[in-house]
Design a protein around this nucleic acid. Structure first.
Lengths: 210, 210
DNA sequence: ATTGTAATGTTGCAATTGCAACATTTTAAA
DNA sequence: TTTAAAATGTTGCAATTGCAACATTACAAT
């Protein structure tokens, strides 16, 4: 994860936060981050801790859409719908800096550390954009098989090998791919039987051209 | 579309482009933008014209993934896979400014116009992130019906009405939703029959709570 | 106005997928 | 080590979806 305050000294960071009228809050596990401190124009920068973002869907079901760690940045402006039902919950005690996004864009300050801050923010948002593109690349496949193969291909290319180390378990993978877990399990069996892949624990070996 | 050179005077724009070692090229319709001028570290800024980005998939099929207009910004870094098979073709005569992305991030210049440039870039990338999130929000639904309803809901909320004006035709909508066109057509018939929606030309009226 | 092309609507049928239920294995906690 | 909970694998069955084929309508070019 790129650091939002990379190349910025502690004293410049303080100046920056003061100029941007940033507010820092600490949260205990299971606390909800309320709309009072966090509205549609705010971005949150996580100094320490872990928070989770849940979506409440049309039928009232609640499911995890994102997790944010130290140095990560989150905000409604990165989400599709204004007013959507999101719940942001602290999973591990956290300290978060809140900044009004408009403040960042309007600020007239003209200091090197401000430029570094903008650059860092650009890098982080870029990273997020890439992650979303990656998932879209996978979800634009219709069949379970093609989704799996797209996923494997992307993961393998990242490390330029024919090995894929699953970053999560199969249940979570199915959610990520938006397919039924058991149907995915079935398809993976077929892929193994047909000699496309080999699986040992969390390591998948691709036996076809990548 | 936000403008990448907003708030930057013509003379400052020139200085900026020179400092960033930008190259400007003109293209005729149907020309392909080659990897020579456009590599994994380059971003392109469209001054005039229209270009289209195609993906060549695993089976050699080619399909449109994105279109870029005046003031738009495109680049491999906004894409999921390094080395993926993309083809960028000029649809209408275009003038494009190419800048090395690393140059932007490393540049030591410290001028107000440079800050404006970074802010504008931030706004544009942010916009792109939102669009991707929007599509993801839709594609994370499993059924055709739920994809359609999610799409309608997002479109309606954008304009705070219960009317949705389709920005493209049904064939393209089906592609956007990654579903079969005829199956979508069938589902839309059901939605009409069940009183969820009403359609008049390109205007869809939502008859349920949004 | 005419003609050709693209978009749309419809439907039967087959293939894929989701769902449910259950057995087995793995993991984490006490 | 024991035990409970979570994850995984498997399978039958029903529902959804994709596919293909075709009729109809809308649209654009001449």
């Amino acid at each position: 994860m790129a650091q939002i305050f990379a190349n910025i000294s502690e004293s410049n960071k303080c100046k920056l936060l003061k100029t941007l009228e940033a507010n820092t809050y600490s949260f205990k596990e299971n606390e909800e981050i309320s709309a009072v401190m966090y509205n549609v124009n705010t971005i949150g920068i996580i100094t320490t801790g872990l928070i989770e973002m849940f979506k409440i869907d049309y039928d009232g079901n609640k499911y995890l859409v994102d997790e944010f760690l130290e140095d990560d940045v989150f905000g409604y402006m990165f989400n599709p719908i204004p007013n959507t039902d999101l719940e942001i919950i602290v999973k591990e005690d956290a300290t978060i800096i809140f900044i009004d996004y408009q403040e960042i864009l309007k600020s007239p300050i003209n200091k090197p550390y401000y430029i570094d801050f903008l650059k860092n923010l650009l890098i982080i948002i870029n990273q997020k954009l890439q992650e979303k593109n990656e998932r879209l690349e996978i979800l634009t496949n219709k069949s379970i098989r093609n989704k799996l193969l797209a996923y494997f291909r992307i993961m393998a290319k990242k490390h330029s090998t024919r090995y894929v180390y699953l970053p999560f378990n199969f249940t979570d993978l199915a959610n990520y791919l938006v397919i039924d877990r058991s149907a995915m399990s079935r398809e993976i069996s077929y892929l193994k039987a047909e000699g496309f892949i080999e699986i040992k624990g969390k390591r998948i070996t691709l036996l076809y051209d990548i």
